[in-house]
Structures are given as structure tokens and as C-alpha cells.
Simulated scan of single mutants.
Amino acid sequence: MYSESYPLAEVASIPSAEHSLSDPYMMARMLFFMHLGMSGSISSASEKMGVSISSGSRWLADLEKDIGCQLYRRNNKSQRLTEAGVYLHNKFFLIHEEVCQLKRALSDFSTVNQGTIRICCTPVYAGKFLIPIVARYLAMYKRVNFTINVSAFGIRSWKEYDIIIGAINSLNSHHDDELPLVRRNLMCEPFVTVASPAYLALNGEPKHPSELSQYHCLYASSLTGGNEWAYALNDERHFYKVAKSLEICDSALLRKAVMAGAGIAYLPRYVVQQDINSGRLATILNRWKTSDWLLNLYYPSQRYMTGCLTSFKEYLLEQHAKVLEQGIFAADTL
């Protein structure tokens, strides 16, 4: 945690507000420095601001010259910000948050639904479900823009997005408890252990989860958190390491690989339900209970949401509910 202490002698060297406001680039430099404090890298901060590294370095030098003290240690990787730099970063970060909140509040005065919505969505939901919802929303609101990143790891960069649709293993769900976001569950499905009949005919069927290490296993760390699969019998839960035969961080491709006979997979039931019903895949280790796969929607609390973001979030939930009612979450739709 950054300290709020700050030498009085250095405070006296900070230029007056009148001088700062007369410099049209001061706010840009301050914003650059805020990104620098968060990333610790001039190149990363420059990329965030959309300027060259040389321009970013010059902005930092100009800011230090204007303030009259060093803010950033260029040759100390373990402690980049000076004490003055820490103080400035913390104070300006709060100012930046207030400005963003003010902008959101002012957007509510507009009767026109407009703005940009940044979304990160897990691949299993993006193509067949999110994109049609976005397309229908765009048809209704011509002045709304979207930027969509398809990734299973949106939570890791949650500050970059307005909405995240992400999947998580129920056993790891506590990892996002401390995020300052509202979490709303969209789906909860048990994992099932499956293989193609041809693979089982050729290799035999494991009778206990501990035998999985002797088989080709297909896994996605984005689904299970690693190469350990959870099984419970008589309320006793155990984790079993599986062979790292094939990792594919996309459940649709993982389904295709297990269908092709590449090995055994541990997948959310809805992904393979139709394949199981048709006999294209067989379930194994059915005596054991598995963990659950959770598809969650993450978004800011109401005080940080624009009218545009609130409108789309409500529309997304409405459309998702219709998808559930129609029962179209199935393998053939992926």
C-alpha cells in the first residue's frame, strides 16, 4: 500500500494551480504518470496513452521539470516511484476517478443512448450468443459503440473493461470475491468426464479417478484452473492430477478433440450434452460427483455505470434469459 506521507519541502516546489491550468498538456502528462505508476513501465504507459515511447519519456521529464523533483526511478526496478511520485500518483488517481464518475453522472442527463462499451467475453459465449445480442442492440441504438475482446482471462485485466463475461471453476470462485465488481451468475453446470466410444474401446475405461494419469487427458486451464480434476465420493472431495496430453483453452475445440478420439476430457455438461444423448461421447466415472462450471457476468456497481452501460447490461440479461428458456445452450450451437 502506498504511503500518504510527503515532504513539506517538496510540496512547496509543486507549481501553482494557475500555472498548471495554463499548460494544456499538464493533464495529459499527469494521466500518463498515473498509467506509469500502475504499470511501472514507460512503454506500457505510452501504449495506454497512444503515444510513442520517446514522447512518453519526454512527458515524464517535462512533468518532473515542472514539479521540480524526481518522480520515477529509471534504474530501480524494485521501487520505481519516488516518495513524491507515490504521493502524486495516489492523489491524481483519486482525481481521475472523480472525473470519470462526473462524466458518468452527466451522461444520465442525455436523452440519447450513446457511448462506448468495453467488453471481455469468454470464447464459449462470444460467437454464438454475445455477438447476436450486440448486433440487435446496435440496430436499436445507432450512437453506441462496442469494443469486444474474446478471452478466457478477462478477470485478470478487469480494470480495462466495463463488462466481463467469464467462466470459472466453482472451486476457484473465491478468487474473484475481492473484486470491486458486481458478480451475477448466468449459468451453473456440473463438469462431466467424457471420451469417445472409439477411444475407450482402444484404451479401456478408467474405474477410479486416480487411473486418469495413465490415459491421454485433454484439459483447459481456463476451465479447471490447471491439470487437476475434482471428484467427490461420500462427501469426500479429492483432486487428481491428469496427464498433460493436450491443453486447449477453448471448450468448443476441446469438445472437437475428444470427439476425434484424442483422449478423455472434463467439460461442462451443456457443452457435450447432445453428444452424450446421441452416443457420440460416453460419460465415465459416473459414481463420482464433480465440481461446477460457473458462467458469470461482472460489471461495476450502479454509481460507476453510465446510462448507456446500464441499458446494455439489462438488455443482455433479458436476452440471456430468453436463450435459457429456449434451451439452445447445446453442443451443436457452439
Rank of each mutant, 00 (worst) to 15 (best):
R303A: 15
S22D: 10
P15R: 04
A330Y: 12
P206F: 07
A260S: 12
T310H: 09
R74E: 13
K256I: 00
M140T: 05
L181K: 07
S301P: 10
Q101F: 14
Y304F: 15
L317I: 05
L233E: 11
C308G: 05
M1I: 00
G166M: 11
L295P: 03
I165F: 09
F33Q: 01
Y141P: 04
D66P: 05
G261L: 03
V134R: 03
S54N: 12
P15H: 02
K142I: 05
W158L: 06
R303L: 10
D62L: 06
Y25P: 14
C249M: 14
F33L: 01
R183G: 02
S46K: 00
L181Y: 07
I163T: 05
L202D: 12
P132G: 07
P15L: 04
L316W: 08
L218D: 02
I148L: 06
H216K: 08
S170N: 08
P123Q: 00
S278Y: 00
A262S: 13
V124N: 04
L317M: 15
V182I: 14
L81R: 01
C121G: 03
S251H: 00
E10A: 06
A167F: 00
A198I: 11
S55W: 01
L253P: 04
S245C: 07
A260K: 11
G68R: 00
I264G: 01
N286W: 02
R303T: 13
M27E: 13
G85K: 02
S251C: 02
